[in-house]
């Protein structure tokens, strides 16, 4: 297998977010790529994960993107999702409109909350997810508008505001984590074909950049096969990541 796409690198990076999580619910609500990643993790190295088909069904097996579960192993309506946030056996991947160096995020509105320039979704589950569950983020278009010095509204709390654990951020350019003494965002790896300078230029605050930044790992043959033949034969992942 060759010609690995950027979307496939991103999906494997999203799968890696769940490594070691064990028997918890992977709530990858941010898009096709993290949803694929969570199911790929379950199909390969993290078999105890619980995943949904995007609806209230916990599927008996990882379900291909866009399909409904043929066999259910459980039921998770919205009220139980919200209960599970408090119970905390859950790792969520959200999609921020803005994120700062400590991982504070905004999905609520751009501009002043009192009268926003652009109203977005609203806080949704951001405050609870980040305060109580391991949280990661997926950014399909890495730019200084998203990676910003100050978020306009804190709908998801970061490390400096009491977050349980902001684990990592996967973007179309890189993987970033908070593995620094004061939990500032750090460049962990760059995707193949991306330079450190590319990431720094597309980030609106000062990133911690180690002396030696490795490349994000490539999917292995089995991962490529599972993505291409089983979990996403329609290639929905490719729609989400600009070439």
């Amino acid at each position: 297998m060759s010609d690995v796409t950027r979307a496939e690198v991103c999906a494997v990076a999203c799968a890696e977010l769940f490594r070691g999580d064990g028997e918890i619910v992977a709530a990858a609500v941010a898009g096709f790529v993290p949803m694929l990643g969570s199911r790929l993790a379950r199909a390969t190295f993290e078999p105890d994960l619980l995943t949904t088909d995007g609806g209230p069904t916990l599927s008996a097996e990882p379900v291909p993107l866009g399909r409904t579960a043929e066999v259910a192993e459980g039921w998770l309506p919205f009220r139980d999702h919200l209960w599970l946030v408090l119970n905390a056996r859950r790792h969520v991947v959200m999609g921020p409109s803005q994120i700062d160096r400590y991982g504070n995020t905004n999905i609520s509105c751009i501009g002043d909350w009192e009268r926003p320039a652009r109203q977005l979704l609203g806080s949704r589950g951001g405050p609870g997810n980040t305060l109580l569950n391991p949280t990661s983020y997926w950014v399909p278009k890495h730019s200084a508008r998203v990676f910003t010095d100050k978020v306009d509204f804190v709908s998801g709390v970061g490390w400096d505001r009491g977050a349980h654990e902001i684990r990592a951020v996967v973007s179309n350019l890189a993987v970033l984590d908070f593995d620094t003494p004061d939990h500032r965002m750090r460049l962990r790896s760059v995707h193949p074909g991306v330079t450190v300078d590319d990431v720094v230029a597309a980030t609106g605050f000062e990133l911690a950049v180690p002396g030696d930044v490795p490349q994000t790992r490539l999917p292995d043959d089995e991962e490529l096969r599972v993505m291409r033949e089983v979990l996403d034969p329609k290639g929905l992942r490719e729609r989400e990541v600009p070439a």
Binding site: S123, P127, G128, L131, V157, R161, A163
Partner: peptide, 8 residues
């Protein structure tokens, strides 16, 4: 506890 730390 939900809400603490956030702009909510």
């Amino acid at each position: 506890p939900v809400g603490l730390g956030s702009d909510v």
